[in-house]
């Protein structure tokens, strides 16, 4: 199965998306490769979620195309697609009193016909554990806090692409999965995402936090007003000038003392002359 996993990819080529006269996305291309975490960044309204919805096949692009293993997404049967990729939405509308375990088990729907099997049950438990939500398994989903729900939603997505049960790589599409989590949980979840990617899963993740992306993503794509500002490995793509162009905010980019990955902080002197912050390392790559 590893050969199959290596072959394909989830690819967007020249995507544009337009509603009426407003263009939400303009000529965006992106590759989600198995084993890699691809993050998309950008200010509010940049088109991040639109890109995710096009990649997941919820919406059809006005121009360009999305392919999985070089075959257009819309040619895939939804049932087959569901065995290959899971999507975690920003928030869930589930109001019925399912337990967290049951919600995670919903991720096994593509594999089951009747009542769940023992394996589905075990996968749901395993997914909850990997999402750091196993202690919630018997709690009712609608009674959970936003952060707890997010971890359960994540577990459901994990359960759906838990292991390679059909040929071809698996994909995980996550829409701001850490938005309601505290600092420790954010890192816990993204750790889990990265380890999942290392098993050969292609991860597409919409993030708000530049530093989290810099820390965990293999590739980042930065959007602004529907167009790609820059893309590539975090170190190359997240330069101060490119970030400023995307976010209209002057920043300082430094590097993590241990991992060496970039760290982006607002430039406190953004209105006046640049005086390096004494607390920062000596070599900020300013502009």
């Amino acid at each position: 199965m590893s050969e199959a996993a290596g072959s394909g990819e989830l690819r967007a080529e020249g995507l544009s998306f337009r509603i009426g006269s407003s263009e939400l996305l303009r000529d965006v291309s992106i590759d989600v490769r198995p084993g890699r975490v691809t993050a998309v960044l950008g200010p509010n309204g940049a088109g991040k979620s639109t890109l995710l919805r096009l990649l997941s096949g919820d919406m059809h692009p006005s121009a360009g195309r999305v392919t999985l293993d070089e075959r257009p997404l819309h040619e895939w049967k939804p049932q087959t697609l569901a065995l290959r990729r899971a999507v975690m939405p920003q928030s869930s509308t589930l109001t019925f009193p399912f337990t967290a375990l049951q919600v995670a088990a919903l991720g096994r729907i593509p594999y089951t016909t009747g009542l769940g099997t023992a394996r589905d049950h075990a996968v749901a438990l395993g997914a909850l554990a990997r999402a750091g939500a196993d202690h919630l398994s018997h709690r009712l989903y609608p009674t959970l806090s936003g952060g707890e729900r997010q971890r359960v939603d994540y577990a459901r997505a994990l359960a759906q692409v838990w292991s390679a049960e059909v040929p071809g790589a698996r994909y995980l599409l996550l829409d701001e999965p850490t938005s309601s989590l505290d600092l420790a949980r954010q890192h816990e979840l993204l750790d889990s995402v990265r380890s999942f990617a290392q098993e050969g899963v292609g991860v597409f993740i919409v993030l708000h936090d530049l530093n989290l992306a810099a820390e965990y993503a293999d590739e980042v794509t930065v959007l602004r007003e529907g167009a790609v500002v820059c893309c590539g490995p975090p170190r190359a793509a997240l330069t101060a000038s490119l970030v400023e162009r995307a976010f209209s905010l002057r920043v300082l980019v430094t590097s993590h003392p241990r991992s060496g990955r970039p760290i982006i902080v607002p430039d406190p002197t953004r209105d006046g002359a640049s005086t390096p912050d004494p607390g920062l390392p000596a070599t900020p790559s300013l502009m």
Binding site: V87, P89, L94, F96, Q160
Partner: peptide, 19 residues
């Protein structure tokens, strides 16, 4: 099975392969 998926929302149900 399909109704369980629909409870998550129509988009989510489609992601789970439900027609």
């Amino acid at each position: 099975r399909s109704l369980n998926a629909l409870l998550l929302g129509e988009v989510e149900a489609r992601h789970l392969g439900i027609p």
